[in-house]
Design a protein around this nucleic acid. Structure first.
Lengths: 117, 117
DNA sequence: ATTATCGGTTAACTAAAGGTAACTAGTTAC
DNA sequence: GTAACTAGTTACCTTTAGTTAACCGATAAT
């Protein structure tokens, strides 16, 4: 991982940063896919394998979400010249940078469930 | 603030926790309202004052979001017997617990903008 | 020839989120 | 009595997110 330098920002820039983050990582599937790719890092994560293992996701959504994640440099797409052709997806090193966010979401969500009950 | 004990969870419980967190804090306005209430903690944050200062929010959305936040114990609602009656909103001590999440969203969003450009 | 697998795409739909504007009710100032 | 301020509510509309199911072209197995 790269060294992290703290970036200074105005209040408005911080709000824009929150919008960006939620836009790129929010929604029903993005973080689920990222977690799956992290937990199965050493596997050959083909499209069909991901679709089978990320429960409930349709081909359309998986295709769209993977494209979005690739656009944002969070996953790589690799076409393998097997027969039939397969396509492998993997999380990038940069992609690992989202996990501080997911950890804070997990911690808060678990704690909140106890608080509310 | 209360002491935080790390809660253990299965993968499925972690996914549910992420869903919970995004449901409670996601959307266009919730974190903006929380940040505003934190930054103006010592003010008397009436409904109209919040509506004027959180740019672009409508009465309908503000009313709904504040109700949701109150249900989740993140803000308090206090009716003051002034003329005309005013209603003050304030972030709770528990409400401060969401800021590790917002910080991770801000940090990631700012860094990502540099990465992508 | 038919069927199956791979990695998708397309169209048509439903559901959820959010925006707009009008409206309510109580109080006060003009 | 008219207007303005308080704190909302209501109905209607648009936009975005997500679901469902059918389909495509290539390759391989029966």
């Amino acid at each position: 991982m790269e060294k992290e330098k703290k970036i200074e920002a105005t209040c408005e820039q911080e709000l824009a940063a929150i919008r960006d983050s939620l836009e790129i990582l929010g929604g029903k599937w993005k973080l689920r896919i990222m977690r799956h790719l992290k937990n199965h890092y050493s596997d050959n994560n083909t499209f069909k394998k991901i679709q089978r293992e990320v429960e409930g996701i349709s081909a359309k959504m998986l295709s769209k979400e993977l494209q979005d994640l690739e656009t944002n440099l969070l996953v790589t797409r690799t076409v393998r010249d097997t027969r039939p052709i397969t396509v492998s997806y993997a999380i990038t090193e940069y992609g690992l940078s989202v996990f501080p966010i997911t950890e804070s979401l997990v911690d808060w969500g678990l704690n909140h469930r106890q608080k509310i009950k």
